[in-house]
Design a protein around this nucleic acid. Sequence first.
DNA 1: TTGAAAGCGTTACCAA
DNA 2: TTGGTAACGCTTTCAA
Lengths: 351, 351
Amino acid sequence: MTASQSTRRSGREPSIADVARLAGVAQGTVSNVLNRPNKVSEKTRLRVERAIDSLGFVRNGTARGLASGTRTTIGFVIADVSNSFFLDMARGAEEVAQLAGNTLLLANSDMDLSKQGAYLNLFDEERVAGILLAPLPRSLHHAASVRPHGRPRVILNADSGSTQVCSVAVDNELGGYLATRHLIELGKRNLVFVGGPETLIPIRDRHRGAERAVIEAHGEVRLDFIPTHEVRVEDGRKVGHSIAARERADVPDGIVAGADLLALGMLQSIVSESDLRIPDDIAIIGYDNNRSAWDSIVPISTVSQPGEEMGRNAARLLLEEVHAPGTHIHQHIVLEPTVVARQSTIGPRKN
Amino acid sequence: MTASQSTRRSGREPSIADVARLAGVAQGTVSNVLNRPNKVSEKTRLRVERAIDSLGFVRNGTARGLASGTRTTIGFVIADVSNSFFLDMARGAEEVAQLAGNTLLLANSDMDLSKQGAYLNLFDEERVAGILLAPLPRSLHHAASVRPHGRPRVILNADSGSTQVCSVAVDNELGGYLATRHLIELGKRNLVFVGGPETLIPIRDRHRGAERAVIEAHGEVRLDFIPTHEVRVEDGRKVGHSIAARERADVPDGIVAGADLLALGMLQSIVSESDLRIPDDIAIIGYDNNRSAWDSIVPISTVSQPGEEMGRNAARLLLEEVHAPGTHIHQHIVLEPTVVARQSTIGPRKN
DNA sequence: TTGAAAGCGTTACCAA
DNA sequence: TTGGTAACGCTTTCAA
């Protein structure tokens, strides 16, 4: 906690004072050359710039931040950097941040609550302009509580439910609904939802959406539910294995998977262990638009979450708050996922 | 470039001076409570801590860094965060950094040279303790040149070839050699190396390693070469398609792929378009230990690069230099990749 | 053990 | 247009 690594470098780095001395001007003038070049005469500007180059001067951001009370850095605390969904968010956020002249730094909580806390604290201490947070699954309460003087914060991929913090989420219930509708519209009537543990809120919401789509079909469609332990390929393989072994009459004609990896595993088992044709006998749709769904032997239809758009929205909200802390009104944006139809539901046409 | 986003927050944040005033002690004492708690009497410490809590005080890292000349943050500039290999490095680096009381911040160059430069510069300005850099493919010269007073820097996944900068790389030639040896030892004699463009140094090195293994076999083994445009699954599918269409006598009995995605695509085409059995008729080994290789319908053997270990080594070297700028001797570490044998070469046994 | 005060490198203001 | 100088919030040294 009370870390203290000494980093005093050998030989002091050149400062503005050094530059000023060499160029024979005042510090303020050097500062102006750096920040408001047009307020300085061409001649002195060149002289200062030459001094800067010859000294190898690089401005000290810490001093700068301290003196100006201003930071241009935004911190993004990510639950799990190995999940490409979050990286999409980062990409979108960076795009917006960059346009506004800010830079985005990433910190990986690595699915560890204490790390998440440590990084939030670090960014607070560093007085970044603002913080983007994709919180760990069960840390919402923690995530949405901001200190009295804390940095502005926007929560991604969860509804903060707070009047103090903006959030940008995606409608999982709708995603489950759309995926299921997609299968129903293709004529499938005997469906099964294969999800991870119901304790995962997003999965639970997707399941609910699936149920809504079935209810809307007024009894014409049935929906089974098969829970899995996790949402990995292996879990999917197990389920696929058991489905492949069923009597033909008991095989569902459509599967809604709570996650792409699950869909991938099921598809692999079904393809290699049965004669069932995909999608004619059994159609499969996943969730997440994971790269591996696209790369599957039979490209898998999926529900795509607008990660980049989430990032853009979050960064936009954050910068709004940063620039107008007084008048800013906290919002909760919920974006809509979309179905990406591929071979596993519509057969070998285009994508 | 001359970005300037105003971030002055409403209502000044509590400072050490405020805490000192409320607790009725001197600033220095508060600082001691924060940094050397044992140098302060229990009684005043508690009083100060209570003041800190009631004010919601969070120390200002910028001022702290400025006054102490010390930073505990390490910056990692990553060529491409969506490549899990780099994230493994980040994980390893973070492990070491954390043990030493440092924190690791990530910046994504997003395969863009100007972004890489911008982030390097940012970290320089922020006076981080040190910089880890996984440079863009063709930016080595740029990456290895440090300014006179620049932060200590360690290069990952490339040999800096510089006496000014440490580097940690992995031996691609050896990886290609090992992969090929693996096939030869399994009895394969008619091999083909399927690689991306030879302009990619790592791929070229892997190819060379493959050639060395073949040369060592004294004419008993032949090695063809099929270049591809990129190293994506689609490229692999094309090659697999053409191989599946060959006369049986012209089909190689072993494939060394320059990358896992290539191997995955080939395997998919071969499995679905021919009767060739894997690995009996044709064995396939990839490179990278990509998650998708593991998740493939037939798990794909691969060459695993020690990403985490690279990260740990790099962080260790960096911290060494940070703590002993004078005596530190720059090193170039080259780690060895290992073969991970799975079904695509050894058939359905264990992993 | 505690207090007072001198920097750290920059910005920003006011005077010249 | 330029120069001089007071903050910014903290650490650190030196006295008390």
